[in-house]
Design a protein around this nucleic acid. Structure first.
Lengths: 162, 162
DNA sequence: GACAACCATTGACAATCTCAACGAATCTCA
DNA sequence: TGAGATTCGTTGAGATTGTCAATGGTTGTC
């Protein structure tokens, strides 16, 4: 019986141990790989809910008290504005978020989660947390916090802003 | 005069500070964002050389002393085997790598960098290192080493393997 | 020698990224 | 006030990437 469960391969075939290569400790490579792992696990956890990591992140942001414009969302999520349009279309079609007029600027719009969206977001957060813990199996809680802090240091490079 | 230099936006428009949202400290999000930053910078640095992060990583591995099979490369790079085929095709067309027969197993093939490939890889490594340092501007050398170590902990989850 | 498993490859398809352009609304500044 | 530049959301196209199924050639098993 062919056990096609996770991904634990077996026979190494040739004696090339790539984890001892110099690339294996190269940060861009490690980040890309960790992200791929993370995204796969999270998407897998979110699929039953009709979400993926991108719609999930967006939905999460729409539950914040101060509604953001789509421009702010695309900046923060590091996505092209056109992608945000499609993602919100998706969420809106599912009745999870609403586009509201922005009283201060009629060009911009506020995207706010519906009650249904908030409930689903909570469920999704729990699912993603479980998936994340699996990926973090090799790290202690302290190390996870350390990683969060370091990644924040990379991302929060707001050059100006007094 | 419209200064369209890097990406340092200005007017926040609405008062929504998304960096104070709970998503901002969520690790899957932070990893995805850091990776996007890193990939963009590195690709930008590699473009003049005719490479990108993926062909570069692959080229790097082919300079290792023990040549790996394509299956091993795809496992290590976390890519589908079919993608590795296309990437090697690309590198081979540029005369950077060679596909050689595997004496031990005629199904498998060894992919080895040519002399031209090795030279370019060296240049590319220097370019990528510079790009990486920019992204790491907010981190000390010690923190960078810490990050490397933590990411290794996530990636090196070989379940079995005595 | 039949049969399962494996490697590289091809092809198809969805998802994602990137860029250019447009109408509507706002801002700037003379 | 009003012309021109800028911003917002949106649409559309095209390249890149991610995922999956199937195939010919090869190897290992029994």
């Amino acid at each position: 019986m062919p056990a096609k469960d996770t991904a634990a391969s077996s026979t190494p075939l040739s004696g090339a141990d790539l984890w001892s290569s110099s690339l294996a400790s190269h940060v861009p490579f490690l980040i890309a790989r960790a992200r791929a792992l993370m995204v796969r696990r999270c998407n897998q956890a979110l699929r039953p809910l009709g979400l993926n990591v991108r719609t999930f992140s967006l939905l999460w942001l729409t539950t914040e008290p101060v509604p953001a414009t789509q421009r702010e969302l695309s900046d923060f999520l590091d996505l092209d504005p056109s992608q945000v349009v499609a993602l919100i279309d998706d969420l809106e079609a599912q009745g999870l978020v609403e586009r509201r007029a922005n009283p201060a600027d009629r060009r911009a719009r506020q995207t706010v989660a519906t009650e249904k969206g908030r409930r689903l977001c909570g469920t999704a957060q729990a699912a993603v947390d479980r998936a994340t813990e699996e990926v973090f199996a090799g790290l202690t809680k302290g190390e996870q916090a350390q990683l969060t802090s370091l990644l924040l240091g990379i991302n929060r490079q707001k050059p100006s802003r007094a």
